[in-house]
């Protein structure tokens, strides 16, 4: 059964107020075209979760679309901090629940397995835990190990309404390959109620069947498939294209003031009607070709 649709249709399936999980890690495999469409369509009051906060989340927060963020910290690597997320935390406009990478990954893992909670050795003795207990007391607790009687910190499962997965390759049913390290993508997809796959290319199912061991998302978890080359621009997709350093630097510059960020959104989100126009605006084929990954290096 084909689940192929347009980006706009897929995004319209998400109501304001939903909990979405995003696939980015810092400046790689971020759901950027998705985020731009969410902002264009005016979807708001979202809860976003992600192991390591990334550019997709930061842009959504900067556009005022996010009420609550559940994450493990993050940055834009050497390009800079998650300035919009940080500003939201500092001014109190964003409810941020901050964990560590593994705590969020374990919360997704518990969600993916249908477990009621998951014990973890991390967070003990930290102010991360102190803050989480103040703000979100119901999402962490202590229990005694019934076998050893040791006391354990346990975390509640994290179950997003929708996971938004930027992948390299999938078929029209949603069977997907993710190349390179997967950070929290596998657990996030499997924890989520459903997944929207955004792929660089959609291939025949016959090709998926020839190398099924590469498939990390089985189609039964997928509600929509969107084929969108360069959908992660300006972030990178391993073995497809490099990050666009100039454009990320431009973004970082724009996050330094509200006016500059609004101008950025006006130019790259509201000022273009769709992803095709966006790609033209950031330099078109000539620029995109220059970002193409070397097949040996993968970047």
């Amino acid at each position: 059964m084909t689940k192929r649709t347009s980006l706009s249709e897929a995004v319209r399936s998400i109501p304001s107020g939903a909990h979405i999980g995003l696939s980015g890690f810092s400046i790689t495999r971020c759901a950027m075209a998705f985020v731009r469409e969410v902002i264009r369509l005016g979807i708001k009051n979202l809860t976003v979760s992600q192991c390591v906060g990334a550019m997709d989340t930061d842009m959504l927060v900067g556009a005022g679309a996010v009420d609550r963020l559940i994450y493990g910290g993050g940055s834009l690597d050497r390009f800079g901090l998650l300035a919009n997320v940080n500003a939201g935390i500092e001014t109190g406009t964003l409810l941020a629940e901050e964990y560590s990478s593994l705590s969020i990954a374990f919360r997704y893992l518990a969600g993916s397995l249908g477990l009621p909670f998951i014990p973890i050795r991390s967070l003990a003795g930290s102010d991360l835990l102190a803050r989480i207990r103040e703000r979100a007391g119901a999402e962490v607790a202590f229990v005694d190990d019934p076998f050893t009687k040791d006391r354990w910190l346990v975390l509640k499962p994290l179950v997003p309404d929708v996971s938004i997965m930027q992948v390299q390759t999938c078929d029209e049913e949603g069977n997907s390959w993710i190349m390179g390290p997967k950070w929290d993508s596998g657990e996030q997809v499997k924890a989520s109620e459903r997944t929207i796959v955004i792929a660089e290319r959609v291939v025949p199912t016959e090709l998926i069947r020839r190398e099924p061991e590469r498939c990390v998302i089985p189609n039964l978890l997928v509600s929509h498939v969107v084929e969108l080359p360069y959908g992660a621009h300006p972030t990178s997709v391993y073995r497809e294209y490099d990050y666009d350093a100039d454009r990320i630097e431009g973004y970082v510059e724009a996050t330094k003031s509200r006016d500059a960020f609004q101008a950025y959104l006006d130019a790259y989100v509201f000022g273009v009607k769709d992803h095709g126009e966006y790609l033209e605006k950031v330099g078109g084929m000539e620029k995109l070709e220059s970002l193409r990954a070397d097949p040996v290096l993968g970047y």
């Binding site: 192991c51 690597d77 050497r78 990478s101 390179g180 929290d184 990178s236 490099d242 990050y243």
Partner: peptide, 24 residues
């Protein structure tokens, strides 16, 4: 690389997996 998210840092890895694998 500019950080862990940069594929330059993953080059010639023996193993590519996930948070649950490495940190778990």
């Amino acid at each position: 690389g500019v950080g862990l998210a940069d594929p330059r840092v993953w080059y010639r890895a023996k193993y590519l997996s996930s948070f649950v694998d490495i940190l778990g």
